[in-house]
Design a protein around this nucleic acid. Structure first.
Length: 273
DNA sequence: GTAAACCTGGCA
DNA sequence: TGCCAGGTTTAC
């Protein structure tokens, strides 16, 4: 589910209802996610106040008032959702973490497939973000020359490169398909064969698509919900993702589906070279 | 590089 | 019943 726009949407929806709240308790109902939930997590956050929310790549950050960073990754099927006091009692299947706040509301991490992650960072160990590339919306870090600079270092496809979190952090399968359509570049093209001008176009398209997607509060392809249970709206605006056989919005040709790097890819053979 | 692995659920 | 899914890591 959540790529950068979805995680940012979750963050924005949670911020007004969780910042300033104090954690009363944490019920870890299932600790076996992609990695085990850190032992002692409940003890370390209970009694602490939530100072801020943040996001890095596809990770949601909850900053505690003692500087401890509480980090969530949604994997493919994770949700982080806030429930007002009255609604807090009903527990659903796959509710792995239930956080009780001091206004009797709850923050619940639910993840059927358990590909998600819950982490704590206090600055004493190597951060999960240590090897991560720039944010796609960071003009200073992610620009045409930066992308072009990888051309001589790799023989990978442009799609594979854009999905690599060490090169640019936060893009996933949906948005890379959309970006490459807007930039007019086929997903199977090798980065080394992509021109400098095309690198610029790809960076521009990235900005356009990601900003649009955030504006529309992310894509609910099957079941994405934000932090207060709302669906996103960007799925209705996908130009190619999931649209095999439908007409290209530009030229009307039939959208094709192929597999690139084991992931479904969609493109228009008329508009993308 | 490429495939398989980790899981569950939904759909044809 | 089999295949597919927004992600990431690990093993040939």
């Amino acid at each position: 589910m959540p790529e950068l726009p979805e995680v940012e949407t979750i963050r924005r929806s949670l911020e007004p209802v969780v910042v300033g709240r104090t954690v009363c308790s944490v019920d870890v109902r299932c600790a076996s996610l992609r990695k085990p939930v850190p032992p002692g997590l409940a003890q370390r956050v209970t009694g602490r106040r939530i100072a801020a929310t943040g996001r890095r790549a596809k990770y949601l950050l909850i900053e505690m008032d003692d500087g401890l960073m509480w980090i969530f990754h949604m994997g493919m099927s994770g949700r982080l959702q806030h429930f007002p006091a009255a609604a807090g009692e009903a527990r659903a299947k796959h509710d792995h973490l239930v956080v009780l706040l001091d206004d009797d509301s709850t923050l619940v991490f639910n993840d059927p497939r358990r590909f998600g992650l819950v982490l704590l960072e206090d600055g004493t160990t190597k951060s999960v973000f240590a090897d991560y590339g720039p944010e796609p919306l960071d003009r200073a870090g992610f620009h045409g020359d930066y992308l072009a600079g990888f051309r001589s270092r790799t023989n990978r496809t442009i799609k594979d490169v854009l999905m690599d979190q060490r090169i640019v952090a936060g893009l996933g399968n949906i948005y890379v398909n959309e970006i490459l359509f807007l930039a007019g570049v086929r997903p199977r093209r090798r980065l080394r064969r992509v021109t400098g001008a095309e690198c610029e176009r790809i960076v521009d398209a990235t900005r356009t698509i990601i900003e649009e997607a955030i504006e529309h509060r992310g894509s609910s392809v099957s079941d994405f919900l934000d932090g207060i249970g709302r669906r996103g709206g960007y799925q209705w605006r996908h130009r190619v993702y999931g649209r095999e056989g439908e007409p290209c919005p530009n030229c009307g040709a039939s959208i094709r589906a192929i597999v690139v790097g084991q992931r479904s890819s969609f493109y228009c053979s008329g508009c993308q070279r």
